[in-house]
Design a protein around this nucleic acid. Structure first.
Lengths: 350, 350
DNA sequence: TTTAGCAGACTCCGGCTAAGACTGCTAAGC
DNA sequence: GCTTAGCAGTCTTAGCCGGAGTCTGCTAAA
């Protein structure tokens, strides 16, 4: 008896989940509340609408779906979507052709910056949502060459060549005036000592050697260290590249111009979006933020799907898409996943 | 008799113009069609609504205003706005405090790039419209220092320092492998020969001297010239910086989400906007494009107010704002004008 | 030339109705 | 005990109607 009861329970929750799944799939497709009659037809379960209604009522009690008003069908809640993506979703395999396109497009990029912006554009184009890719973290960047150039008294231009293709300029103000030959000497020393190491390593070694030999070091050497310290100290580039923002305007649920404006303002101010991306850079694999889950008002009604990209098993950035909560997760997830993998492969130092 | 008729005609067109002016001013203020009764009150002319109606009818015949439907007031047409800004407008003087803010904000910028983006933000913030500033033309940029850095076989990083604050990197691929000392020699020569001149001058001199001495020149010198040519040949940066795009979302006339999307897409693709800006870089002073005048569909319903900025009397870029046709021209025009002047002053090489 | 007055047109708004879509409930059936 | 048919009730949507308000164009008078 007990056993039979348990089995019934199990088959019941299974049925409920299956119905939730079809409901969400259907809702994602046409964006309108799903009624019991429609769900009965779609479910493939040969149940009458009345039975479906009972199940739907249960699902509503569980907070997985809700009815916009008394006599409308049901739409998924954030919690419903969460359950859907966590355990119900069956992702669609990607077409090989699309994967190839991604690979080729990214491989054709000239430098790191354009790889990043290409990745963002591709994500946006393929998913028809907004693509986002963070700039790679500096910690994973190997210094290849450093050069100093005197701009004017006490102003020095520092040129950093990194990873064979990326170049950064920084202008620093110094305490004292350096002669051209002094700068040359400093650069020579730093190149001999630190070329080939990654920036964070250099930074930490710099600090220790400065402390160790504060007195014994000759003046120029000490100044050199100070220079280098100043260069590496400059703010790290917390930044991302967006593409296809306007894609969001095609979605009905984004018709509220104020919501849209808030979202776009968030894109511009970058802070809120970076916060989300920061969270997912720490997590191992793919992350999905659904609607208000992120605790951020402007992201109500939108979901963010992200995946970290890495070089040599170290996560150096995040990429993903931003779209309405009602997005085709089954299609979007593999796209984000693959793009992250391809980007990782491309960025691997050769 | 003839004289009196002429005088009457004149006073009549004067009256019509005055009425057009008040109508547009009023419409700019509250964005709703203006009826004869309202206009009669606002005009200060002590005429009855009936008389006003006759005049409005004339104005409509002239294509300066139109009625959205039979029993509504009148709104200005593009042609009406054109007449308004060309001959009727009285611009408001700017508050000294605002001018000071602009000056300080721009002067505080670290380098050319940030001056440009600051200018764009300020325009957007003060006018509550979308600010746009083109990057300065390269032709007006003085080379201060050039440096070559070998990245790998046949790949060279070129560093150009311009105008004391701006730095540009270009990576070029060469036909043959250059040694470090060869590069050093080339750089030394170019610095000695060309430092302090502007890039376009350098470019033309380069070409002539290459032709002149093709055979007599020693090999390295010839290679040096080729290098320099390659550097300067790289595409010029046709680009602009936008700020405050989302401000446009606050305007009622922009409620059509499709129009808005098209406009934003145009911002992103840059081509259409650059076309407008190109036109106004050639004109001497301030330019105003009203609605569809520009011949561009996406710019229906929006106006663009631009002013060129210059260094040493040479126009090197354009700046302005983009907003609904119904914008407060009397306030916007001086703001754009002053900002252009301030930017010109700031960019003057010291 | 200006004005008053009037008929006509059109928008906007609220209220009302009919149609349609669902739900929840109850009672009957397997 | 689960499932189902049927039914009453609820809510949205679209459409229609009528009144209020606005504004125009016309005509005739000042």
């Amino acid at each position: 008896m007990a056993r039979s009861r348990k089995e019934t329970d199990k088959s019941n929750t299974e049925r409920a989940e299956s119905l939730l799944k079809t409901l969400i799939e259907r809702y994602i497709q046409d964006g309108q509340p799903i009624g019991s009659r429609a769900l009965a037809k779609d479910s493939g379960l040969d149940l009458s609408p009345a039975t479906i209604r009972n199940v739907m009522s249960d699902l509503e009690d569980m907070g997985l779906i809700l009815a916009p008003h008394t006599s409308a069908g049901r739409v998924p809640t954030d919690k419903g979507y969460r359950m859907f993506v966590d355990s119900l979703l069956t992702v669609k395999p990607m077409q090989a052709a699309v994967v190839d396109t991604i690979k080729q497009q990214l491989a054709a990029s000239a430098n790191t910056d354009s790889v990043i912006s290409n990745a963002s554009s591709m994500l946006s184009e393929i998913t028809q949502l907004t693509g986002v890719v963070t700039m790679p973290k500096r910690e994973q960047v190997r210094l290849e060459h450093i050069e100093f150039l005197k701009l004017s008294t006490k102003r020095i231009l520092v040129i950093l060549v990194m990873n064979g293709q990326e170049v950064q300029n920084r202008v620093i103000d110094t305490d004292r005036d350096f002669s051209a030959s002094e700068l040359q000497q400093s650069a020579n020393y730093l190149n001999a000592e630190f070329a080939g190491q990654d920036l964070s390593t250099i930074r930490s070694r710099l600090v220790t050697s400065m402390q160790q030999a504060r007195d014994s070091m000759q003046q120029l050497m000490q100044d050199t260290m100070n220079l280098a310290d100043q260069v590496l100290d400059s703010s790290k580039n917390d930044d991302y590249i967006l593409a296809g923002e306007t894609n969001l305007m095609s979605y009905n649920e984004m018709c509220d111009i104020n919501k849209l404006r808030n979202l776009f303002d968030a894109f511009n101010s970058k802070r809120d979006i970076l916060h989300i991306l920061d969270q997912s850079i720490q997590a191992e694999g793919m992350q999905i933020f659904i609607g208000g889950e992120s605790g951020n008002k402007v992201l109500d009604d939108v979901s963010v799907v992200t995946a970290p990209y890495k070089v040599d098993d170290d996560v150096i950035g995040v990429l993903g898409v931003i779209g309405p909560t009602r997005m085709a997760y089954d299609r979007v997830i593999p796209i984000v996943d693959v793009t992250a993998k391809v980007l990782s492969a491309i960025l691997r130092p050769d």
